[in-house]
Design a protein around this nucleic acid. Sequence first.
DNA 1: ACAAATAATCAAGCTCCTTGACCAATTAGA
DNA 2: TCTAATTGGTCAAGGAGCTTGATTATTTGT
Lengths: 153, 153
Amino acid sequence: MVDEKLPELIDHLGWRLWRAARLWKAEFDSRMNARGLAWYTEGRASLIAQIGDAGVRQSALVHRLGLTKQAVQQIVDELAAEEIVTRRPDPADNRGRIITLTPKGIAAAHVANEVKREIDAAQRLRLGAARFEALMDTLRTLAPDAQTPENSG
Amino acid sequence: MVDEKLPELIDHLGWRLWRAARLWKAEFDSRMNARGLAWYTEGRASLIAQIGDAGVRQSALVHRLGLTKQAVQQIVDELAAEEIVTRRPDPADNRGRIITLTPKGIAAAHVANEVKREIDAAQRLRLGAARFEALMDTLRTLAPDAQTPENSG
DNA sequence: ACAAATAATCAAGCTCCTTGACCAATTAGA
DNA sequence: TCTAATTGGTCAAGGAGCTTGATTATTTGT
Protein backbone atom coordinates (compact mmCIF):
# COMPACT_ATOMS: atom_id res chain seq x y z
CA MET A 1 0.00 0.00 0.00
CA VAL A 2 1.24 3.40 -0.92
CA ASP A 3 1.23 5.94 1.86
CA GLU A 4 -1.12 8.63 0.65
CA LYS A 5 0.03 11.11 3.28
CA LEU A 6 1.46 14.24 1.76
CA PRO A 7 5.06 15.17 2.44
CA GLU A 8 5.15 18.95 2.78
CA LEU A 9 8.88 19.37 3.13
CA ILE A 10 9.07 23.11 2.99
CA ASP A 11 11.99 24.26 5.05
CA HIS A 12 15.04 23.10 3.16
CA LEU A 13 18.22 24.82 2.11
CA GLY A 14 17.27 25.39 -1.52
CA TRP A 15 14.04 27.13 -0.59
CA ARG A 16 15.77 29.40 1.89
CA LEU A 17 18.57 30.29 -0.50
CA TRP A 18 16.14 30.96 -3.33
CA ARG A 19 13.91 33.16 -1.19
CA ALA A 20 16.78 35.19 0.18
CA ALA A 21 18.39 35.57 -3.24
CA ARG A 22 15.11 36.64 -4.84
CA LEU A 23 14.57 39.18 -2.10
CA TRP A 24 18.06 40.60 -2.50
CA LYS A 25 17.67 40.86 -6.26
CA ALA A 26 14.34 42.64 -5.92
CA GLU A 27 15.87 45.08 -3.46
CA PHE A 28 18.79 45.79 -5.77
CA ASP A 29 16.65 46.24 -8.88
CA SER A 30 14.30 48.51 -6.99
CA ARG A 31 17.08 50.73 -5.67
CA MET A 32 18.79 50.95 -9.05
CA ASN A 33 15.47 51.81 -10.62
CA ALA A 34 15.01 54.58 -8.06
CA ARG A 35 18.31 56.05 -9.23
CA GLY A 36 17.26 56.02 -12.86
CA LEU A 37 19.35 52.97 -13.71
CA ALA A 38 16.61 50.45 -14.38
CA TRP A 39 18.68 48.83 -17.13
CA TYR A 40 21.29 47.91 -14.51
CA THR A 41 19.75 44.65 -13.34
CA GLU A 42 21.36 42.27 -10.90
CA GLY A 43 22.32 39.86 -13.66
CA ARG A 44 24.16 42.49 -15.63
CA ALA A 45 25.64 43.84 -12.41
CA SER A 46 27.41 40.59 -11.64
CA LEU A 47 29.03 40.63 -15.07
CA ILE A 48 29.97 44.30 -14.90
CA ALA A 49 31.50 43.76 -11.46
CA GLN A 50 33.96 41.33 -13.01
CA ILE A 51 35.37 43.82 -15.50
CA GLY A 52 38.59 45.32 -14.24
CA ASP A 53 40.49 48.46 -15.16
CA ALA A 54 42.20 46.86 -18.10
CA GLY A 55 39.14 44.96 -19.28
CA VAL A 56 38.75 41.20 -19.40
CA ARG A 57 38.52 38.57 -22.06
CA GLN A 58 35.00 37.37 -22.68
CA SER A 59 36.16 33.83 -21.97
CA ALA A 60 37.38 34.94 -18.54
CA LEU A 61 33.89 36.22 -17.76
CA VAL A 62 32.47 32.83 -18.74
CA HIS A 63 34.82 31.21 -16.29
CA ARG A 64 34.29 33.64 -13.42
CA LEU A 65 30.51 33.81 -13.70
CA GLY A 66 30.07 30.09 -14.13
CA LEU A 67 27.71 30.58 -17.06
CA THR A 68 27.79 29.26 -20.61
CA LYS A 69 29.67 31.24 -23.23
CA GLN A 70 26.33 31.91 -24.95
CA ALA A 71 24.83 33.45 -21.84
CA VAL A 72 27.82 35.77 -21.48
CA GLN A 73 27.69 36.53 -25.18
CA GLN A 74 24.13 37.68 -24.85
CA ILE A 75 24.65 39.88 -21.81
CA VAL A 76 27.70 41.48 -23.39
CA ASP A 77 25.73 41.99 -26.62
CA GLU A 78 23.06 43.90 -24.77
CA LEU A 79 25.50 45.96 -22.74
CA ALA A 80 27.49 46.78 -25.88
CA ALA A 81 24.33 47.83 -27.71
CA GLU A 82 23.58 50.24 -24.89
CA GLU A 83 27.16 51.49 -24.86
CA ILE A 84 27.90 50.31 -21.36
CA VAL A 85 30.78 48.14 -22.49
CA THR A 86 32.95 47.95 -25.59
CA ARG A 87 34.16 44.78 -27.28
CA ARG A 88 37.44 44.71 -29.20
CA PRO A 89 39.67 41.86 -30.38
CA ASP A 90 42.44 40.73 -28.07
CA PRO A 91 45.69 41.79 -29.80
CA ALA A 92 47.49 38.85 -28.20
CA ASP A 93 45.00 36.35 -29.63
CA ASN A 94 42.54 37.44 -32.25
CA ARG A 95 40.02 34.81 -31.26
CA GLY A 96 39.45 36.53 -27.97
CA ARG A 97 37.50 39.70 -27.27
CA ILE A 98 38.45 42.21 -24.61
CA ILE A 99 35.48 43.66 -22.77
CA THR A 100 35.92 47.14 -21.32
CA LEU A 101 33.59 49.49 -19.51
CA THR A 102 32.72 52.79 -21.17
CA PRO A 103 32.71 55.96 -19.04
CA LYS A 104 28.94 55.59 -18.83
CA GLY A 105 29.46 52.04 -17.59
CA ILE A 106 32.05 53.12 -15.03
CA ALA A 107 29.79 55.81 -13.61
CA ALA A 108 26.90 53.36 -13.30
CA ALA A 109 29.12 50.75 -11.70
CA HIS A 110 30.00 53.22 -8.97
CA VAL A 111 26.32 53.74 -8.23
CA ALA A 112 25.76 49.98 -8.25
CA ASN A 113 28.52 49.47 -5.71
CA GLU A 114 27.03 52.11 -3.49
CA VAL A 115 23.68 50.33 -3.65
CA LYS A 116 25.21 46.91 -2.97
CA ARG A 117 27.01 48.31 0.05
CA GLU A 118 23.82 49.93 1.28
CA ILE A 119 21.92 46.65 1.16
CA ASP A 120 24.75 44.69 2.73
CA ALA A 121 25.13 47.28 5.48
CA ALA A 122 21.43 47.06 6.28
CA GLN A 123 21.59 43.28 6.52
CA ARG A 124 24.78 43.41 8.58
CA LEU A 125 22.97 45.65 10.98
CA ARG A 126 19.96 43.35 11.17
CA LEU A 127 22.00 40.20 11.71
CA GLY A 128 24.92 41.63 13.62
CA ALA A 129 28.45 41.67 12.19
CA ALA A 130 29.36 38.22 13.48
CA ARG A 131 26.35 36.45 11.99
CA PHE A 132 26.70 38.40 8.75
CA GLU A 133 30.34 37.40 8.36
CA ALA A 134 29.54 33.81 9.29
CA LEU A 135 26.85 33.79 6.61
CA MET A 136 29.20 35.14 3.96
CA ASP A 137 31.84 32.64 4.95
CA THR A 138 29.44 29.70 4.78
CA LEU A 139 28.09 30.83 1.42
CA ARG A 140 31.65 31.07 0.11
CA THR A 141 32.18 27.47 1.18
CA LEU A 142 28.91 26.39 -0.39
CA ALA A 143 29.56 28.04 -3.75
CA PRO A 144 33.21 29.00 -4.09
CA ASP A 145 34.59 31.30 -6.75
CA ALA A 146 36.02 29.80 -9.87
CA GLN A 147 39.76 29.24 -9.66
CA THR A 148 41.45 31.43 -12.24
CA PRO A 149 44.21 29.61 -14.13
CA GLU A 150 46.66 32.31 -13.01
CA ASN A 151 45.86 31.68 -9.36
CA SER A 152 46.16 27.94 -9.49
CA GLY A 153 49.84 27.71 -10.50
CA MET B 1 37.76 65.10 -11.54
CA VAL B 2 35.94 61.85 -11.76
CA ASP B 3 37.83 58.89 -10.42
CA GLU B 4 38.18 56.61 -13.42
CA LYS B 5 39.29 53.70 -11.28
CA LEU B 6 36.97 50.74 -11.62
CA PRO B 7 35.12 49.48 -8.59
CA GLU B 8 35.06 45.70 -8.88
CA LEU B 9 32.91 45.00 -5.86
CA ILE B 10 32.42 41.30 -6.37
CA ASP B 11 32.06 39.68 -3.00
CA HIS B 12 28.74 40.91 -1.69
CA LEU B 13 25.77 39.13 -0.16
CA GLY B 14 23.58 39.16 -3.25
CA TRP B 15 26.24 37.56 -5.39
CA ARG B 16 26.88 34.81 -2.85
CA LEU B 17 23.19 34.08 -2.34
CA TRP B 18 22.54 34.01 -6.06
CA ARG B 19 25.45 31.68 -6.74
CA ALA B 20 24.52 29.27 -3.97
CA ALA B 21 20.85 29.28 -4.95
CA ARG B 22 21.66 28.68 -8.62
CA LEU B 23 23.93 25.81 -7.69
CA TRP B 24 21.30 24.24 -5.45
CA LYS B 25 18.65 24.57 -8.14
CA ALA B 26 20.91 22.96 -10.74
CA GLU B 27 21.64 20.10 -8.40
CA PHE B 28 17.96 19.53 -7.71
CA ASP B 29 16.92 19.68 -11.36
CA SER B 30 19.73 17.33 -12.30
CA ARG B 31 18.79 14.75 -9.68
CA MET B 32 15.10 14.92 -10.52
CA ASN B 33 15.97 14.52 -14.17
CA ALA B 34 18.03 11.45 -13.31
CA ARG B 35 14.92 9.95 -11.75
CA GLY B 36 12.81 10.59 -14.82
CA LEU B 37 11.03 13.59 -13.31
CA ALA B 38 12.47 16.36 -15.44
CA TRP B 39 9.14 18.22 -15.37
CA TYR B 40 9.53 18.56 -11.58
CA THR B 41 11.62 21.72 -11.56
CA GLU B 42 12.61 23.58 -8.43
CA GLY B 43 10.08 26.32 -9.09
CA ARG B 44 7.20 23.89 -9.31
CA ALA B 45 8.61 21.99 -6.35
CA SER B 46 8.29 24.96 -4.03
CA LEU B 47 4.63 25.30 -4.94
CA ILE B 48 3.90 21.58 -4.66
CA ALA B 49 5.58 21.51 -1.25
CA GLN B 50 2.98 23.97 0.02
CA ILE B 51 0.01 21.76 -0.84
CA GLY B 52 -1.18 19.86 2.20
CA ASP B 53 -3.32 16.77 2.59
CA ALA B 54 -6.58 18.66 2.30
CA GLY B 55 -5.40 20.92 -0.50
CA VAL B 56 -4.96 24.68 -0.32
CA ARG B 57 -6.67 27.69 -1.74
CA GLN B 58 -4.80 29.23 -4.64
CA SER B 59 -4.76 32.53 -2.77
CA ALA B 60 -2.97 30.83 0.13
CA LEU B 61 -0.25 29.71 -2.27
CA VAL B 62 0.15 33.29 -3.44
CA HIS B 63 0.64 34.36 0.14
CA ARG B 64 3.00 31.57 1.16
CA LEU B 65 5.19 31.71 -1.93
CA GLY B 66 5.41 35.48 -1.98
CA LEU B 67 4.65 35.60 -5.69
CA THR B 68 2.00 37.44 -7.66
CA LYS B 69 -1.34 35.76 -8.19
CA GLN B 70 -0.59 35.58 -11.90
CA ALA B 71 2.64 33.70 -11.31
CA VAL B 72 0.85 31.15 -9.15
CA GLN B 73 -1.96 30.97 -11.68
CA GLN B 74 0.50 30.02 -14.36
CA ILE B 75 2.32 27.35 -12.40
CA VAL B 76 -0.95 25.81 -11.30
CA ASP B 77 -2.19 25.91 -14.91
CA GLU B 78 0.81 23.94 -16.07
CA LEU B 79 0.64 21.44 -13.23
CA ALA B 80 -3.08 20.96 -13.81
CA ALA B 81 -2.56 20.42 -17.54
CA GLU B 82 -0.07 17.68 -16.71
CA GLU B 83 -2.44 16.18 -14.14
CA ILE B 84 -0.14 16.76 -11.20
CA VAL B 85 -2.70 18.87 -9.37
CA THR B 86 -6.45 19.37 -9.65
CA ARG B 87 -8.30 22.66 -9.31
CA ARG B 88 -11.89 22.77 -8.01
CA PRO B 89 -14.01 25.61 -6.63
CA ASP B 90 -13.96 26.20 -2.88
CA PRO B 91 -17.43 25.20 -1.64
CA ALA B 92 -17.13 27.72 1.19
CA ASP B 93 -16.46 30.60 -1.20
CA ASN B 94 -17.00 30.13 -4.89
CA ARG B 95 -14.42 32.71 -5.82
CA GLY B 96 -11.67 30.52 -4.44
CA ARG B 97 -10.08 27.44 -5.98
CA ILE B 98 -8.84 24.49 -3.96
CA ILE B 99 -5.63 23.00 -5.29
CA THR B 100 -5.04 19.31 -4.57
CA LEU B 101 -2.31 16.89 -5.56
CA THR B 102 -3.25 13.94 -7.77
CA PRO B 103 -1.83 10.49 -6.92
CA LYS B 104 0.77 11.12 -9.62
CA GLY B 105 1.64 14.39 -7.89
CA ILE B 106 1.87 12.77 -4.48
CA ALA B 107 4.23 10.06 -5.72
CA ALA B 108 6.47 12.63 -7.36
CA ALA B 109 6.44 14.82 -4.26
CA HIS B 110 7.80 11.92 -2.24
CA VAL B 111 10.69 11.54 -4.67
CA ALA B 112 11.30 15.28 -4.54
CA ASN B 113 11.50 15.23 -0.77
CA GLU B 114 13.98 12.41 -0.90
CA VAL B 115 16.12 14.43 -3.30
CA LYS B 116 15.90 17.58 -1.20
CA ARG B 117 16.96 15.64 1.86
CA GLU B 118 19.84 14.08 -0.05
CA ILE B 119 21.18 17.47 -1.09
CA ASP B 120 20.71 18.99 2.34
CA ALA B 121 22.38 16.01 3.98
CA ALA B 122 25.38 16.35 1.69
CA GLN B 123 25.73 20.04 2.50
CA ARG B 124 25.25 19.40 6.20
CA LEU B 125 28.09 16.94 6.01
CA ARG B 126 30.31 19.40 4.16
CA LEU B 127 29.64 22.28 6.52
CA GLY B 128 29.13 20.41 9.76
CA ALA B 129 25.79 20.33 11.54
CA ALA B 130 26.44 23.49 13.54
CA ARG B 131 27.33 25.67 10.55
CA PHE B 132 24.51 24.19 8.53
CA GLU B 133 21.94 24.99 11.20
CA ALA B 134 23.41 28.45 11.69
CA LEU B 135 23.08 29.04 7.96
CA MET B 136 19.46 27.93 7.88
CA ASP B 137 18.70 30.08 10.89
CA THR B 138 20.31 33.16 9.38
CA LEU B 139 18.51 32.63 6.08
CA ARG B 140 15.23 32.34 7.94
CA THR B 141 15.95 35.70 9.54
CA LEU B 142 16.91 37.21 6.20
CA ALA B 143 13.81 36.02 4.36
CA PRO B 144 11.16 34.87 6.82
CA ASP B 145 8.08 32.90 5.89
CA ALA B 146 4.86 34.72 5.29
CA GLN B 147 2.67 34.97 8.38
CA THR B 148 -0.53 33.07 7.75
CA PRO B 149 -3.59 34.98 8.99
CA GLU B 150 -4.53 31.97 11.15
CA ASN B 151 -1.19 32.06 12.92
CA SER B 152 -1.17 35.74 13.66
CA GLY B 153 -4.25 35.85 15.89
C1' DA C 1 50.21 21.09 -43.51
C1' DC C 2 46.50 19.45 -40.93
C1' DA C 3 43.72 17.92 -36.87
C1' DA C 4 42.28 19.34 -32.52
C1' DA C 5 41.32 22.68 -29.29
C1' DT C 6 39.77 27.30 -28.06
C1' DA C 7 36.92 31.73 -28.49
C1' DA C 8 33.17 33.71 -30.10
C1' DT C 9 28.78 33.86 -32.59
C1' DC C 10 23.88 32.84 -34.45
C1' DA C 11 19.43 30.84 -33.55
C1' DA C 12 15.98 29.02 -30.84
C1' DG C 13 13.81 28.11 -26.58
C1' DC C 14 12.99 27.27 -21.49
C1' DT C 15 12.11 28.71 -16.48
C1' DC C 16 10.50 31.78 -13.43
C1' DC C 17 8.65 35.74 -12.71
C1' DT C 18 6.46 40.55 -13.81
C1' DT C 19 2.69 44.26 -14.99
C1' DG C 20 -1.85 45.49 -16.96
C1' DA C 21 -6.54 44.71 -17.89
C1' DC C 22 -10.50 42.25 -16.74
C1' DC C 23 -14.52 39.39 -14.73
C1' DA C 24 -16.97 36.94 -10.95
C1' DA C 25 -18.24 36.27 -6.21
C1' DT C 26 -18.50 38.03 -1.61
C1' DT C 27 -18.83 41.47 2.06
C1' DA C 28 -19.61 46.05 4.20
C1' DG C 29 -22.10 50.12 4.43
C1' DA C 30 -25.51 53.86 3.47
C1' DT D 1 -31.48 46.38 -0.45
C1' DC D 2 -28.72 48.16 -3.85
C1' DT D 3 -24.37 49.55 -4.22
C1' DA D 4 -19.58 50.16 -3.74
C1' DA D 5 -15.31 48.10 -2.46
C1' DT D 6 -12.75 44.13 -1.81
C1' DT D 7 -11.08 39.58 -2.72
C1' DG D 8 -10.01 35.59 -5.82
C1' DG D 9 -9.05 34.16 -10.10
C1' DT D 10 -8.10 34.58 -15.24
C1' DC D 11 -6.24 36.23 -19.90
C1' DA D 12 -2.53 38.41 -22.44
C1' DA D 13 1.92 40.04 -23.07
C1' DG D 14 6.61 40.31 -21.90
C1' DG D 15 11.23 40.74 -19.34
C1' DA D 16 15.26 38.57 -16.93
C1' DG D 17 18.33 35.08 -16.85
C1' DC D 18 19.58 31.32 -18.26
C1' DT D 19 19.99 26.69 -21.60
C1' DT D 20 21.36 23.53 -25.81
C1' DG D 21 22.71 22.95 -30.69
C1' DA D 22 25.13 24.24 -34.74
C1' DT D 23 28.59 27.13 -37.06
C1' DT D 24 32.66 30.16 -37.94
C1' DA D 25 37.42 32.10 -36.88
C1' DT D 26 41.82 31.60 -35.00
C1' DT D 27 45.54 29.38 -32.75
C1' DT D 28 48.18 25.34 -31.16
C1' DG D 29 50.22 20.72 -31.27
C1' DT D 30 52.35 17.21 -34.05
